[in-house]
Nucleic acid binder design. Sequence first.
DNA 1: ATTGCTGCAAAACGTTTGCACCTAT
DNA 2: ATAGGTGCAAACGTTTTGCAGCAAT
Lengths: 150, 150
Amino acid sequence: MNIEAQERFRNFLKNARNHRITPERFEVMDAALQFEGHFGADDLYIKMKNNHSNVSRATVYKTLDLLAQCELLTKRNFGDNLNRFENNFFRSNHDHLVCKNCGKIAEFSHPGLREVANQIAADLGFDISGYSFNIFGKCKDGTKCRHTDE
Amino acid sequence: MNIEAQERFRNFLKNARNHRITPERFEVMDAALQFEGHFGADDLYIKMKNNHSNVSRATVYKTLDLLAQCELLTKRNFGDNLNRFENNFFRSNHDHLVCKNCGKIAEFSHPGLREVANQIAADLGFDISGYSFNIFGKCKDGTKCRHTDE
DNA sequence: ATTGCTGCAAAACGTTTGCACCTAT
DNA sequence: ATAGGTGCAAACGTTTTGCAGCAAT
């Protein structure tokens, strides 16, 4: 579908040792890049099944990790024991604000966070590969968000 | 065990509606506050079992969430589909650096992150309850950390 | 007396694995 | 020819749930 993304994935697979270029992997890539917003691996599997794909669940899970490794996707975790993926090809880096009531996810980007992360990693002797900044709270969206007063 | 913590938990249970004060809950509280470092709910359950407690797994899981709600514990998630808890009673707030190779977790605190989070939440109309800043990378601890070159 | 809590076991959930067959290299 | 990938189903580990009896209010 997307030539540039295909090219990046292909090169990633070629350069990583022992990775083969298969039609199934590109099928997963296409479906993943078409997904709007955040999605779980199983969401994608179901969606592909509904579209009459016969790529297996195992292949979907494995391929999504490969796509995250080559940074076509970003793997996110908002503290609910569910890995979510997000297109990282079209958009710039950003972080998330999660509503604990209704699950709504807002996005923001804050200049300087990257630099803070780099600095801390350097200070502590880590070879940084990424960071995640999640803010938790309750949104004020009356239509979606039941305000339990917990 | 710890009078001040007990008091806080007791008040939390009293003030929240429909929460009862039971011996099992304080048994879990004591065991949790004694745990050094990060622990999973099941870790605590096993440890209590080994100490001849007969509090059930269900009660441990439920009580840990209550303890996180009243901020005696902090619930963490480092993206590996496992909820970890950490004593939040004795220590000040801090964030984490996670080694993707060996799982080692380093801690840091960075002044200003709290303020950044507050500001962003305010801007986006969220009622903030907390934030998490995790940095991922590889540590340089030769003894623990196999440096696969992925 | 009410209704929340408990222990137990079973189920649920997302994810990973073992296997035999297949296919890219 | 080799070794990595595939689909399938079963297994995994963590967490949640249904239930009958129990206990805090």
